[in-house]
């Protein structure tokens, strides 16, 4: 069992996948990382991208994450995936929006479109596209 590592991918809304893998690749914030069994304990943030899990039979599993956290604990890789787009300015915009709605509930006002949201959505869309393209390329090859 020394040459496999348990992988669990969960999001706040559901359990995405869990199983054994020989190698895990994840889009950490400082660049893509590869995790082999017996990796040192690690805690890192993820950016939008794909997670690949190589399995013993030579199969490979792909998952798209829009960010989140990854924990390595020697025998276990836990991916706490975000279901939503997270970015500092985007969260800020959401917070302001919620605040504005609360104010609006007391008095009425109209809203504007914000760029932070559009930008973060674009980033996610681009990452999603890349993941799909990779999957397609794999399917043909």
């Amino acid at each position: 069992m020394a040459n496999t590592i348990k992988v669990e991918i969960v999001s706040a809304e559901e359990e995405v996948w869990s199983g054994e893998g020989t190698m895990v690749f994840a889009p950490a914030e400082m660049g893509e990382i590869g995790i082999a069994p017996q990796h040192a304990p690690l805690l890192t943030r993820l950016k939008p991208g794909e997670i690949r899990v190589q399995q013993e039979a030579g199969e490979e599993q792909f998952f798209f994450v829009s960010g989140g956290l990854l924990e390595v604990q020697g025998h276990l890789v836990t991916v706490l995936s975000d279901t939503a787009l997270r970015a500092g300015d985007l969260d800020e915009a959401a917070a302001l929006e919620a605040q504005r709605r609360a104010e609006q509930a007391m008095s009425d006002r109209t809203s504007e479109v914000d760029f932070a949201k559009a930008k973060a959505e674009l980033i996610q869309a681009a990452a999603q596209l890349r993941a799909i393209q990779k999957l397609r390329g794999k399917g043909r090859g």
């Binding site: 809304e13 279901t83 939503a84 969260d91 800020e92 915009a93 959401a94 917070a95 919620a98 605040q99």
Partner: peptide, 14 residues
């Protein structure tokens, strides 16, 4: 969806 809650939660957590 968690995304719909983020804003409201962030106000309090901040």
């Amino acid at each position: 969806q968690l995304a719909d809650l983020i804003g409201a939660m962030k106000v309090m957590m901040d």
